[in-house]
Nucleic acid binder design. Structure first.
Lengths: 150, 150
DNA sequence: TTTTCATGTAATAATAATAGTTACGAATAG
DNA sequence: CTATTCGTAACTATTATTATTACATGAAAA
């Protein structure tokens, strides 16, 4: 399974896209995310398959957010990324022979499964709209600070 | 920070040690864990520093569990391993510049921190004694199955 | 229609984290 | 003194991820 470091990158990208009224190119997004256009395309291609974004080729093309901010939760994005492994543990469920190992795996699996369920539920509670609001709040605060400093 | 794949390996090792009345050599443990004696020594060295195990060099030496099974929780072992990162996310808390990123990181950090707290609490509830009991149960079951088959 | 811009994608290289190996030193029992 | 076993440094191998290169495809503009 794939890694998860992209969840935050994708959120970052989608929010930037939401702030603009025309498509963003892979190049622009790559600059934004401090990465490479091809990596952006690879990642966004997955999101396109689940209808989160659309892409247009050629002059004036790029990537566009396809759904309303309120309708996209962090969980949706996690799912669109293929529900990558959240934990740093190679699936413990190997070498079925040793009974000691079976007992260990069972206990660990239980704990990790519960934590994962909680985390995923939590991701479902936060939408892109939530994040956009938080961003706006930070932005207003930032401007207030600048003003205060002169 | 280090990886977490060792938590299950260490539990496995400690339970095997608990079943024996003399030290286990790194070589024996390595066989048990399908790995290498040097890797075993490296890992166990960390546990020795927190008093979970002792080592004796030379003839008849090896590794011994230093505490009662009831007194060692999975959380203790997690701590002895240096509280390695549990999640597959490079700490999101970089590039403080972009306010969009700040909003994203804040939301993700919140969710992950809570899930981690829950998981760690859960690890604290399971001791080596719990696991040893579960192993014994499985062992009895296994013997019953064998008997039934002839 | 030709040029330019942009995505689509395969193939390859670079990077980084982890695990495994080799080699040898130090301690201890017999 | 010898065999055994941990302690550790240095090096190699493996694996996963990310980055890069190269080129094909499609679409708008000149």
């Amino acid at each position: 399974m794939k890694r998860n470091s992209r969840l935050s990158a994708v959120l970052h990208a989608l929010l930037h896209m939401a702030e603009r009224d025309r498509p963003m190119t892979s190049e622009e997004l790559a600059t934004c995310l401090h990465t490479n256009p091809v990596v952006v395309r690879r990642t966004m291609a997955g999101l396109r398959e689940t209808g989160l974004v659309t892409s247009v080729r050629g002059h004036g093309g790029g990537w566009t957010l396809a759904r309303a901010l309120e309708d996209v939760s962090m969980r949706d994005i996690y799912a669109a990324l293929g529900e990558p492994m959240l934990f740093q543990m190679g699936n413990v469920s190997e070498s079925p022979g040793c009974l000691v190992e079976q007992a260990v795996n069972h206990a660990l699996d239980d704990a990790f499964r519960d934590a994962e369920a909680m985390l995923i539920a939590r991701l479902g509670e936060v939408t892109l709209a939530t994040l956009a609001d938080d961003f706006k709040r930070r932005f207003a605060e930032h401007r207030a600070t600048l003003k205060q400093l002169g």
